[in-house]
C-alpha cells in the first residue's frame, strides 16, 4: 500500500519464512470437526486481544495521545463479567455490563485528557494503577472461575476459525469502515496533526478525543472478555498484564508515529501479528519461551533505528518561521 507498511510487512514475512525453514509444517492447516487448526491459526488466536487493543490504541495515538490503562481496563472487564456469572448471572448480560463499565472508564480517561487537559500519559497512568486495584476489589482478590458455555465461546469458541479471531477481524473491519465511511478518520488525523488549525476550522476536538478514548476502552474490554473467557476465569492481577506495552509497540511497528497524525490500521495489524509471530517463532525455534522479551527488545530497537531518520519526533521547540 505505501512505504510505511513496507518494514512491518517485511518483518512479518521474514519471521514467517524463518518459521517455515525451522518447522516445515508451520503453514499446514488441518480441518478437524469443522474447525481449522494450525500454527498460523494459533498465531492469530493468541494475537487477537493484542490486535484489538492495538486498534483502539492506534486511534488514541493518532490524536497525539496514549492510553496506558487498557491492560487494567481489560482486567476490569473480565472481573465484571466473571463475578456476574459467578453470582448466577447470565453471560450476555455480564458481557454487556462489562462493556458498559469499560465505556465509563473510557469516558473518564477522555474527561481527564480532553476537558482537564492533563497529559495523556499521566492521565491514563492513574487508571493503569488504580484499575488493577478496582479489578481486585471486584474479584475480592480471588481468581474467579466460571463455567458457562456462552461465555467460553468468546475466547475459546470456534466457528470454523476461533471466535476470538473473528471478533478481532470484525472490529478491524468495523473500524476501517467507520473511519472511512464517516469523517472520523480524517478528523482524528486533523486533530492529531494540527490541533489549532482544526479548532479554527470548527472541528470539535473534544468530542473526537473523547470518542477515541471510549473506543480504546471498549476494545480493551472486549479483549479482556476474550482473555478471561479463554481461561474461564478472571485473574485481576495478571489478565492483560503489559498488554498496553505490546499494543503500543504494535502501533509503533505499524508505522504510526507517537507524535500523532497519520495512522495505519493495517500497519497496526501487521505490527501486532509481527509481535505474536515473534513469540511463536521463539518458541518453535527452540529458544526458551521466556527469552521472547529479549527478542522483543531487539525488535523495538531495530524499528527505532529504521524509523529514526524520517520519523524522529522533534524535541519541544518553537516552530521555525522562515523569514519575518
Amino acid at each position: 500500500m505505501n512505504r510505511r507498511l513496507l518494514w512491518p510487512a517485511l518483518a512479518l514475512v521474514a519471521l514467517l519464512v524463518l518459521n517455515l525453514v525451522v518447522t516445515p509444517s508451520f503453514f499446514e492447516l488441518r480441518i478437524r470437526d469443522g474447525h481449522l487448526f494450525g500454527s498460523l491459526v494459533d498465531v492469530l488466536r493468541n494475537g487477537a486481544p493484542t490486535v484489538l487493543i492495538a486498534l483502539g490504541m492506534t486511534l488514541v495515538i493518532a490524536t497525539r495521545g496514549i492510553d496506558l490503562s487498557v491492560g487494567a481496563v481489560a482486567a476490569i472487564a473480565g472481573a465484571v463479567a466473571c463475578t456476574h456469572l459467578a453470582g448466577g448471572g447470565d453471560a450476555v448480560t455480564g458481557m454487556v455490563l462489562a462493556l458498559l463499565v469499560c465505556a465509563v472508564l473510557g469516558l473518564w480517561n477522555g474527561f481527564l485528557v480532553a476537558v482537564l487537559g492533563i497529559q495523556p500519559i499521566i492521565a491514563t497512568l492513574v487508571l493503569m494503577i488504580a484499575g488493577r486495584g478496582v479489578a481486585m476489589l471486584l474479584t475480592e482478590g480471588q481468581i474467579v472461575t466460571v463455567d458457562d458455555d456462552v461465555f467460553r465461546q468468546v475466547g475459546a469458541g470456534f466457528v470454523v476459525l476461533p471466535v476470538a479471531i473473528l471478533i478481532s477481524l470484525a472490529v478491524l473491519g468495523g473500524v476501517a469502515l467507520v473511519t472511512r465511511r464517516t469523517a472520523l478518520g480524517m478528523l482524528i488525523e486533523s486533530v492529531g496533526v494540527n490541533p489549532e488549525a482544526s479548532r479554527l476550522a470548527g472541528v470539535r476536538a473534544r468530542t473526537i478525543i473523547w470518542t477515541v478514548y471510549v473506543f480504546a476502552a471498549l476494545c480493551a474490554g472486549i479483549a479482556g472478555l476474550m482473555i478471561s473467557s479463554n481461561v474461564n476465569a478472571a485473574d485481576a492481577n495478571n489478565a492483560g498484564l503489559w498488554i498496553e506495552m505490546d499494543a503500543i509497540l504494535a502501533v509503533v511497528i505499524g508505522g504510526t508515529l507517537l507524535t500523532g497524525g497519520r495512522y495505519s490500521l493495517l500497519g497496526t495489524l501487521l505490527g501486532a501479528l509481527t509481535i505474536q509471530t515473534l513469540t511463536t517463532t521463539v518458541y518453535t525455534i527452540g529458544v526458551p519461551p521466556t527469552a521472547t522479551l529479549v527478542f522483543k527488545a531487539a525488535v523495538v530497537i531495530v524499528v527505532c533505528l529504521l524509523q529514526a531518520p524520517r520519523g524522529a519526533p522533534v524535541p519541544r521547540r518553537e516552530p521555525e518561521v522562515v523569514g519575518s
Binding site: A183, S198, G202, T207
Partner: peptide, 13 residues
C-alpha cells in the same frame, strides 16, 4: 475540513 467539521464526524460529506 471546515465543511466536514460543521456537519460533524458522523455525516461524511
Amino acid at each position: 475540513l471546515a465543511l466536514q467539521a460543521a456537519r460533524g464526524w458522523a455525516r461524511q460529506v
